[in-house]
Write a protein that binds this DNA or RNA. Sequence first.
DNA 1: ATTCAATATAATCATATACGGATATACGAA
DNA 2: TTCGTATATCCGTATATGATTATATTGAAT
Lengths: 113, 113
Amino acid sequence: MNKLEDFFKLLADETRLRVLHLLSYGPLCVCQLTGIMKEPQAKVSRHLSKLRDGKLVKTTRQEQFIEYRLADDHALLMALISILHDYQNDEYWKQDIQNLAFKDVFLNECKHK
Amino acid sequence: MNKLEDFFKLLADETRLRVLHLLSYGPLCVCQLTGIMKEPQAKVSRHLSKLRDGKLVKTTRQEQFIEYRLADDHALLMALISILHDYQNDEYWKQDIQNLAFKDVFLNECKHK
DNA sequence: ATTCAATATAATCATATACGGATATACGAA
DNA sequence: TTCGTATATCCGTATATGATTATATTGAAT
């Protein structure tokens, strides 16, 4: 189907918007996202699944981790992301960006648990 | 609040998308929209109310009719509408555009009932 | 002021979606 | 093959949203 309505349904959730925003700066694995966003793993994973089902993100396994990245062949998504950068200044987003700076730290935390 | 999530919630409905699309070509009253879209008046009206609550459309009374138009001061909406014109070619939208050509006919039908 | 036409809202029902906690799966490493 | 870790899914529940039908409201015209 791939209807416009379904595309916007995927965007109509704060958690998924935060994920897409973070991924717009580069690929991340699930444990990095849970670390950066301070959200339960199940919650992050469930939303990632929906994004993947909707073809908004893609995955590849990198050793122990599963790396998520934006589906850069999704033209509408990419166009939207770029205009969002201009219009959005949500508190969550700012915080996420700050935490994103420590993405390598979060990755190491995953490894040692 | 005016959160991004709520903005996309408003877009995550086929009826509301059709309305926004039609209004992107110019203002229309409720009875014209029901005529063009072939949808029940209550349905159209309820969705228009939501769009108005979310500041995506504005209204002015024109004699007997209430004219709806896009909130052209909503920068994100306007940016989005313009990219949608490039990416969307839904069947509904095509049909709506065809019917839009007869908007004056639909307006007259309102007057005579 | 009353009436009528245009639009809005209410009530009910059905469906969809999110969450938390627990558990399952899958894959790399030993 | 077995174990451990990273990720995914299930279950139960709470909430949200949409369609339909009927009714209410609002303002213009008489």
